[in-house]
Amino acid sequence: MWLLIVVASLAFVINLRVLYYYVMMHDNLAQNINLTPDVLKHEYQMLISYLNYPWITELNLKIPMSVQGKHHFAVVKKMFFICYSLLVILIPINYYNWRSLRRKKQFVLLIRPFSCYFQLVLLGAVFWLFFFNQVFIDLHKIVFTDKSWIFSPITDPIILVLPAKFFFLAGCCWLVLVEGITFGLLKFFKVQ
């Protein structure tokens, strides 16, 4: 059940376009690569569409990109589909588990694990808030072993419009969402 919360929250946050639009406008990102805000917004929508839809097989942006940069986003696209595949698998499993727990009045069995999950995410939030740069780099080293995540602004100017601040805020949104849902379910389990 908790894995479903983690994955569903991730799917929500990676599609939370308003977060990128906020950073784009607040930090005036379009000027970094001489685009208008409307064009940059369109480019971001194209990137998200490429990452989300299997029928879009080529990443064609107005922002120049190296072969390594395109490879990086192809890997990210695969990760998006792993996330969505997990959702498809976990939703029916959790539906049946939830019904079974409700019928047998066994929600109490989830109090301790969800308490641990809540504390684990809280610890993760501390690391994210105070050691963001190192956590961000370490996560990329683990996930992208081919070093395709290291962008040069000369060959891949897209890095100039995908700042660390955006990923920091996205991570914060994900942590708040996971923690909020976990906390809400924990309270629900305690009253059942």
Rank of each mutant, 00 (worst) to 15 (best):
L160W: 03
Y22Q: 02
R102C: 09
V75L: 13
S49V: 04
K187G: 05
L129V: 06
G184H: 07
L185M: 15
Q119R: 13
P153Y: 02
F80N: 04
D146Q: 06
R112K: 15
F127N: 00
V67Q: 11
A164E: 15
V121I: 14
L120N: 05
L123F: 15
N94W: 11
A170S: 10
F167H: 09
I181D: 05
H72D: 10
Y96V: 13
L90H: 06
F188K: 10
N32R: 10
K78E: 07
K141P: 06
Q134R: 15
F168E: 04
K141C: 12
G171C: 06
T155F: 08
F12P: 02
N32T: 01
Y20H: 07
R112Q: 15
Q134F: 15
L120V: 04
R99Y: 15
V108F: 13
A164T: 08
K41C: 03
L3D: 02
V176H: 02
S152T: 12
P113S: 04
N97P: 03
W55K: 11
L109G: 07
I150W: 08
Q31D: 15
F12Q: 03
F183E: 06
P157K: 08
L186I: 01
L35W: 07
K190D: 01
G184T: 00
N133K: 09
I63S: 03
A11H: 00
N15M: 07
Y21R: 07
N52P: 01
V143I: 15
A8L: 12
M24E: 06
Y117S: 04
F81L: 05
G180Y: 12
L61E: 04
R102G: 13
M79D: 02
L101H: 09
A164W: 11
I82L: 09
M24C: 04
M24N: 01
K104F: 11
L129Q: 10
L59P: 02
T182V: 10
F12Y: 14
M24Y: 00
Y50P: 03
E179S: 13
I158G: 02
F107P: 06
I93H: 06
Y96D: 01
M46Q: 14
Y95Q: 06
V67C: 02
L129A: 14
L47E: 10
I5R: 05
L109Y: 06
I111C: 08
N94V: 12
F131H: 09
A74H: 11
M79Q: 02
H42F: 10
F144A: 00
L186E: 03
S115C: 11
I137S: 00
K62M: 09
E43G: 01
A74L: 14
P64G: 05
V23H: 03
F144L: 02
A164I: 13
S66N: 02
Y53N: 08
W2L: 10
M25V: 15
F118N: 10
R112G: 10
H71V: 13
V88S: 09
V39H: 05
S152L: 10
